[in-house]
Design a protein around this nucleic acid. Structure first.
Lengths: 231, 231
DNA sequence: TACCATAATATGGCCTACCAAAATCATCTA
DNA sequence: TAGATGATTTTGGTAGGCCATATTATGGTA
């Protein structure tokens, strides 16, 4: 008993990430951070060499990323890094708007101050990262802001969908947050979400969340079509 | 030119579905139609034998279905058919409500009578299938109704999300459509969506689409919690 | 008989090696 | 210089094997 209890307490929290999962993370990361660029071919055997794993693993990883939408498969030519076109990006932002709006409304309807508090915490982290010019931190904490939004009302499925879609527009995100004034406007818009939630104002929270994504989408569109917005 | 045109016209309908894709469809189908039941173990080597393909393929297929949410992987035990719990089903219906509502609103805002016409066509097919007690047909045409809803406003990404989620609740859908009165209520609710779209009433279309899914969700919850069907 | 240690068995995770077909590239000839 | 020919690369797919772990018999002992 004692043994069991101690064993459980001591047990090294090893979710034994399998080699496949490690490889998956590595490749996904490589695509997200731009090591592999959109359109690049992903040659199986090259990946084997680079990752130091067998083709079995590489193939499973490629399949997985394919169903995530990060990799596209040309018939008889093989996998390439998926290219995100304009219109698709817009659609992804639109879906996020709908789902994040929904989650924000649900949060507001909970009338639980702890939610607004938790969100404010993330928001502070975001502001801090902006001040430090730590753009990776901004992205991470923004992600965690939204994760809180969904998990506080137990919407992990919706969070999964948002997360899945988000990786596909990740490079856009990293560009939008770098635009002029986004360090002020972004957090301000998110603060409006939190305020509405604290007031228990469902419609307001919904609208504020929609607005935030919509404005990010607009910036992304501008970035995609070349010119930087002055805003 | 002539050559090219003829070539394109004659070109044998590429059966280039790779073996992998065929296997994927087979297994997905087998899960959806209940050949494999939730909780069933999916033993790799058995699947190899049943599908007549190599383990490589089977593993890729399992990975793919895993990321679709149809298959779950227990650490150190291997893949099983995912089990859908109550709460998750509710979340899936909720997401569908948000996205289908969004699509319905967009359709209404197009003010294009062709959209309502196309939807009515699907609706007629649904009613016909109900009269014939062809439940598979009801599901198929309902699917096509929603596909129209999304594709008419070029929202294929959202349609993809809805589709992905829908396969996970497929067995629930086939139960909800069999409940008392659903043959009348379902089509009636969908007709309200179409009417609102025809009127160009965005809010009405949004609300009608939400209502339809919400009522399906309520029935599904009843089915899940109430009388458990004798599996 | 109850129970525990041990050996089989089953299975996932991972690897190497191989083959065929298609695409691509280089080369050589008419 | 255009076109045929051949070599190379790469994917799609197969076969089979190794190892670690988990389950299940199995059998022996108290």
């Amino acid at each position: 008993m004692n043994d069991d209890a101690q064993g459980a307490a001591i047990r090294v929290e090893r979710p034994t990430k399998t080699l496949r999962e490690l490889a998956l993370d590595k490749v996904r990361e490589a695509i997200i951070n731009g090591y592999f660029r959109p359109g690049d071919r992903l040659v199986e055997r090259d990946l084997c060499a680079q990752l130091g794993v067998s083709r079995t693993i590489v193939r499973e990883v490629l399949r997985h990323l394919e169903s995530e939408g990060l990799v596209a498969n040309l018939p008889n030519k093989g996998p390439i890094v998926a290219q995100l076109n304009h219109d698709e990006a817009k659609q992804i932002y639109e879906i996020r708007a709908a789902l994040e709006g929904m989650a924000a409304r649900l949060c507001a309807e909970q009338n639980n101050p702890a939610i607004a508090d938790a969100l404010n915490k993330s928001l502070e982290d975001i502001r801090h990262s902006y001040r430090e010019k730590d753009m990776a931190g901004v992205l991470a904490h923004t992600s965690s802001f939204y994760q809180t939004l969904f998990s506080m009302v137990d919407r992990h499925v919706a969070w999964g969908v948002v997360n899945l879609l988000t990786v596909r527009i990740n490079h856009l995100r990293s560009m939008t947050i770098k635009t002029q004034n986004r360090d002020v406007q972004g957090p301000a818009q998110m603060a409006r979400i939190v305020d509405a939630i604290r007031r228990g104002d469902g419609d307001g929270a919904y609208q504020a969340a929609m607005d935030h994504v919509t404005s990010a989408s607009a910036i992304a569109q501008a970035v995609l079509s070349g010119r930087q917005p002055i805003d």
